Amino acid sequence: MNARIRVLGFLLASSALSAVQADERAPLTYDRIDLSSEAQGEVQNDILVAMLSSEMEGPKAAALAVEVNKTIAKAVDRIKQVPEIKVQTLGYQTSPVYQKERISGWRVKQSIRLESLDAGKLGGLLGELQQQLHLESVGYETSPQKRKEAEDGLIKEALGAFRQRAELVTRELGRSRYRIVALRVDTGGPPVRPMALGMRAMAVEAAAPVPIEAGTQKVEVNVSGTVELQLN
């Protein structure tokens, strides 16, 4: 019995010592405060993006495909004559047309995406392309380089605000200094998508440029982190 008691006492003492050592190794987390700051701004949209398509219906899908391909190929050749405009062919769709629950024909559609930093040239070309293609949407986006430049400036602003708050809290709580133990920087803001055109915009005459304003896009930077206050 005594031997069992001695063994049990040894185990309890070992556990207590291990707990103390673990506490000594664990980092101290008192006097830590969570802070956050943000900075907002606007960046000018600079890339005009347009979506166009060729769509036909008829009794034979193969014949429709030939005509749609010809129309798209002709449009792509024309677009490539303007080096400032990028063009990309998108999804090709063939779907049945029903009448009284029976297939009465077929619908074939293919789309292309155009983008350019030169809004004047793309707007003028869109007026020309509408003679053969359906203009589905047009709108502005911000180029990655322009957005990055705006975000870099806002990061500096948000970090400056974070430091000011940390210094304010340190002074008000009677401490001499602080150190940052964790920091997170998030950039955001909704992307601007090409907008669907209304009836008024769709009625633009063939040779006329498409009227649209570039506008701006909201950019946000959020900084959050934890500071530890120190006495000395």
Rank of each mutant, 00 (worst) to 15 (best):
138 V>D: 06
147 R>G: 01
198 G>C: 05
190 P>Q: 09
148 K>D: 08
135 L>S: 05
142 T>V: 03
136 E>Q: 15
133 L>Q: 05
132 Q>I: 09
170 T>E: 07
128 E>C: 01
161 A>H: 01
159 L>D: 07
151 E>Y: 04
191 P>W: 07
126 L>F: 10
192 V>H: 05
130 Q>T: 15
153 G>D: 14
142 T>G: 03
184 R>S: 08
178 Y>R: 00
138 V>N: 06
142 T>L: 02
143 S>I: 04
164 Q>V: 08
190 P>S: 08
152 D>R: 15
143 S>H: 04
131 Q>Y: 11
141 E>N: 08
131 Q>V: 10
138 V>Q: 08
180 I>P: 02
168 L>R: 12
198 G>T: 05
202 M>P: 04
128 E>S: 10
153 G>T: 11
151 E>D: 06
186 D>N: 15
183 L>M: 05
143 S>M: 06
141 E>S: 07
129 L>R: 09
191 P>R: 04
153 G>C: 12
154 L>N: 02
134 H>N: 15
186 D>T: 15
152 D>Q: 12
139 G>F: 06
197 L>T: 00
145 Q>I: 14
152 D>I: 03
195 M>F: 13
197 L>E: 04
147 R>A: 03
166 A>Q: 00
143 S>W: 01
127 G>S: 07
182 A>I: 08
126 L>E: 09
202 M>N: 09
174 G>Y: 02
126 L>Q: 05
189 G>H: 03
193 R>E: 15
127 G>M: 04
174 G>M: 02
